[in-house]
């Protein structure tokens, strides 16, 4: 209960903080929206008349804005600047601040990105089914958790090197290529599709959009959720180990 309260406090604080950077937020949202919109344009042209594709990419745009993670800017920069020392003195787990920033940024991305979503929805032919949209909501939550853990894990590399931005950038490229932005995983060649479905990148981004767009049957939805549930503890455990080792190194070499 106290953790939830702390998370709410930190999210509130970071929401206020980012309100002051609204112009920067607009550029961030546009950056995040570009790739799903590009996918929408390219794949709508490649497969004309398929409403499923445009529905998928509009859903992907929403998922992208709701799962966006910038721990290489927020958390990793705090390690480089020594700001994390302030966090170590607070009577709360350090990750709470990072998570609060993450949630605040996602709320802002959704709010600022809403006009883009509406315009995309008006232009592209869509066919959403309420039942499937509701079915996709838990997948969005899990995807958001997975993407945070993945980015946070890569950002922890800042404890050992000065190039955490590059490490996270590489991870972002993998999400772009294998997560369903460059191409929907359902359109991958058959052998690659099996790999794409099993890797965590689709679980972080493409899966909720596929469910909402009606691209998956019941068994495939269950399988998708199963992969999310498998990757969640794996990434969580890796993040916990990474944090413990990182903070041990930080507290051993100087704050």
């Amino acid at each position: 209960m106290r953790l939830i309260q702390l998370l709410a406090i930190n999210t509130w604080r970071e929401f206020l903080q980012w309100m002051a950077w609204r112009a920067f937020l607009i550029t961030m949202v546009i950056n995040q929206a570009v790739t799903p919109l590009l996918g929408l344009a390219v794949w709508s042209a490649a497969l004309p008349g398929r409403t499923g594709i445009s529905t998928y990419y509009v859903a992907l745009l929403v998922v992208q804005l709701m799962t966006v993670s910038y721990e290489h800017h927020t958390f990793a920069n705090g390690i480089y600047s020594g700001e994390v020392s302030h966090e170590l003195l607070k009577p709360q787990p350090v990750v709470i601040t990072t998570l609060g920033t993450n949630l605040a940024l996602r709320i802002w991305h959704l709010l600022v990105g809403l006009p883009i979503i509406i315009v995309a929805g008006l232009i592209a032919p869509l066919s959403f089914e309420l039942r499937l949209v509701l079915l996709a909501i838990p997948a969005v939550v899990l995807a958001a958790a997975l993407r945070f853990l993945f980015t946070y894990l890569l950002a922890l590399s800042a404890f050992w090197m000065q190039q955490a931005h590059g490490v996270v950038g590489f991870g972002e490229s993998l999400i772009f290529l294998l997560g369903g932005t460059a191409a929907p995983v359902m359109l991958f060649p058959e052998q690659l599709r099996a790999v794409g479905e099993a890797l965590p990148f689709r679980a972080m981004l493409g899966l909720p959009a596929e469910i909402a767009a009606g691209s998956l049957n019941g068994a495939q939805i269950v399988q998708g959720y199963a992969w999310q549930c498998i990757w969640l503890p794996v990434l969580a455990l890796a993040a916990i180990i990474g944090w413990r080792r990182g903070v041990r190194r930080y507290t051993a070499v100087g704050g």
């Binding site: 604080r13 970071e14 206020l16 903080q17 980012w18 309100m19 002051a20 950077w21 020594g82 700001e83 020392s85 302030h86 966090e87 003195l89 601040t97």
Partner: peptide, 15 residues
């Protein structure tokens, strides 16, 4: 509490 003259306040500077 620890207060450092070089960095008296940490965290959200826009608040």
């Amino acid at each position: 509490a620890m207060i450092r003259g070089s960095q008296p306040i940490g965290g959200a500077g826009e608040l």
